[in-house]
Design a binder for these strands. Structure first.
Lengths: 209, 209
DNA sequence: GTCTATACGCTGATAGAC
DNA sequence: GTCTATCAGCGTATAGAC
């Protein structure tokens, strides 16, 4: 393809043209507002060719979705392989998502902002699926080894990644006008340190002094 | 209707039947997977009657959307009128959203989990629209009067409400099996106090990392 | 205001030549 | 494998009786 990275078996050139066209159209107009004719035109292929590569319009969406899901999961595997603390793993994931939101916004929008079950009948809710459960695992490990505060995994995971996902949505909707990576440091600090006013200075002084 | 509350001018009985049927069907099957015939059947009205009350299928969705948006905004006005601290206002909003997720899940799902622009062409992105900008205002006031830590409004608003919205999505997708109000206290504590373990060592790590 | 019957465009999918 | 031409069904919306 490649979408997020080069590894893994990429689809064949023609599949790629079709999937890339479909991704673009789905993101900008919505699955239901895009016809197979639109995809065919954009991919510079014919209807017959489309149906030679995919069994249906829904099949195109499915292929796209599961392909990107795999790439997402690969990215997370890489982050886990890095042997960081679990907090830093969370931060790294957020950092990558913020970057991709700028550089590959169509992919991020399709994966993080679309209701896939609306057009892929069999699809499980995305938040329960591999990459997202992996994110919850990382949080769980962090709680277990004491990096992260005690509490319900799903609540803490929601706090960590829910805020990030919200920012991505706002950015994609044009309601944040700065590139997300510029807001990364502030965001990370808020999440881990909390949002109520606190006298950070004295806390830090207490440690160093 | 009433959806969230009784005040305001409710639609007429027939409008109400149609809108209630449409809400149910849109939430469960998605706007594009619902035909006017489905709505007509569910509302126990005829096609002709539907088109006597609304100009189009899209018109039904629009009426529903803006009606609920008004009710949402009214709810926020009530919270603001209560004269709480701004942090408590945020908490109160989250508490109400959690409660409504249990008792009126179709409304919450329609308002917080649907991509309205996919079927209501003129609609502005929901996060930029009245109730959501009001939420950002509350955060802004909290920053200004020193209750909430210094920082970018949109980042802090994302942290506060993004986590809550994420939990609502997870709950609506069946990935959280406990009623959200039971998780409210924990959630609030995490948001305002932060997620890293609370001894100074890890706080410093979070700051430097 | 409510109803039934109908028109008709669009779109997903197929057939069959090359 | 790719293409064009075509079909069949669905779904929005209208016409017109009551």
């Amino acid at each position: 393809m490649p979408y997020l990275k080069d590894k893994g078996q990429s689809p064949k050139p023609m599949d790629c043209r079709i999937l890339t066209a479909a991704l673009h159209l789905f993101v900008h107009h919505g699955y239901h507002n895009v016809s197979v004719h639109d995809i065919q035109r954009k991919a510079k292929a014919s209807i017959g060719s489309i149906y030679n590569h995919f069994d249906s319009k829904e099949g195109i969406a499915r292929a796209l979705y599961y392909h990107l899901l795999d790439e997402f999961e690969e990215m997370l595997a890489d982050v886990i392989a890095e042997e960081l603390t679990n907090i830093d793993r969370c931060n790294r994931i957020i950092s990558l998502l913020f970057k991709y939101t700028e550089s590959r916004h169509e992919i991020v929008e399709f994966m993080l902002y679309e209701k896939h079950r609306r057009f892929i009948p069999g699809a499980p809710p995305i938040c329960g699926v591999a990459p997202f459960s992996t994110m919850q695992d990382i949080v769980k490990w962090g709680i277990e080894n004491g990096e992260i505060c005690q509490g319900s995994e799903c609540v803490i995971t929601s706090c960590v990644f829910g805020g990030a996902i919200r920012m991505i949505h706002l950015r994609l909707d044009g309601l944040i006008d700065r590139p997300l990576p510029e807001l990364y440091d502030a965001f990370i600090a808020h999440i881990w340190q909390g949002l109520s006013r606190k006298d950070q200075g004295s806390l830090l002084r207490a440690v160093s002094g």
